[in-house]
């Protein structure tokens, strides 16, 4: 019994079908617990007032925005090395979810920045890197859409993902260099987990778990869809030949 058995599409669909209801249920429990706890039953921060409640969606979505790209990177590597189709399709399935997470992180950041910094947007290193990450997601998805042959698309997007990762890291440092200091530290220090108090930490933990589970559930579901869509295309092609 090895992990690679799940590279078989049929096996993947069967297993995820069994697991998915549980994942969805857990996602619901964690998200509802975390968000309700965070929204209704946490005190205001003495400095930030009620805006501290935004942390329960801002931090998990930002985490997932980066982790989704990491997951795509790993899946792309597996596709390049071992040629498992499920892996390439999982990377494709994850991209829109990651893009939405990035968008949520940017939007909530803007809503948070408006009262705290007095501006919706600042060219702060963190913000700028996320915007660039969002552009990478857009390009990656556009390339998938543009190429008709499935294997070619999988190959090209995997390489784009690898090269993109290197450049994303380069951009992160470049951006730091370009605008160090201006907004550094500021109110974002709440991001550092060591100085957040337990009252805020426990609901945040639930929210992070909820976002992770939501991502897993969505990727499973969307990968199944991609597998089926691919099989549909293959069958149609065979019909066309016959």
């Amino acid at each position: 019994m090895s992990l690679w058995e799940y590279a078989n599409p049929v096996k993947f669909i069967r297993t995820t079908d069994k697991v998915l209801p549980w994942v969805w249920a857990l996602t619901g429990i964690c998200l509802v617990t975390g968000l309700v706890w965070g929204f209704f039953f946490t005190p205001d921060d003495f400095r930030q007032g009620s805006t501290v409640k935004i942390i329960y969606i801002h931090v998990p979505s930002a985490l997932m925005a980066i982790n989704a790209w990491l997951m795509m990177l790993v899946a792309s590597l597996i596709w390049i090395v071992r040629r498992h189709h499920v892996s390439a399709l999982a990377a494709r399935a994850a991209a829109p979810v990651g893009a939405v997470m990035t968008l949520i992180a940017l939007a909530t950041g803007a809503f948070w920045g408006q009262p705290m910094w007095g501006t919706w947007w600042a060219w702060d290193p963190r913000l700028t890197s996320f915007l660039i990450l969002f552009l990478f997601y857009l390009g990656y998805m556009a390339l998938w859409e543009a190429i008709e042959n499935d294997d070619t698309a999988a190959d090209l997007t995997s390489i784009l993902c690898l090269v993109g990762s290197v450049f994303a890291i380069l951009s992160r440092y470049a951006v730091n260099f370009w605008n160090q200091g201006l907004h550094q530290g500021a109110t974002l220090s709440l991001d550092k987990e060591e100085n957040i108090s337990d009252v805020f930490w426990f609901p945040l933990l639930f929210c992070i778990a909820g976002f992770v589970l939501l991502f897993v559930a969505l990727v499973f579901l969307r990968t199944q869809t991609e597998i089926r869509a691919r099989r549909t295309r293959a069958l149609l092609a065979r019909e066309g030949q016959a």
Binding site: L138, L143, I147, T152, L156, L160, G164, L170, S171
Partner: peptide, 22 residues
């Protein structure tokens, strides 16, 4: 990356511009 795509110019800009950032 975009050599085989018809009218890939716009797509290529979308792919290349983020890489130009650093």
């Amino acid at each position: 990356l975009t050599v085989g795509i018809k009218r890939g110019g716009l797509l290529m800009s979308l792919l290349v511009l983020p890489l130009y950032v650093p």
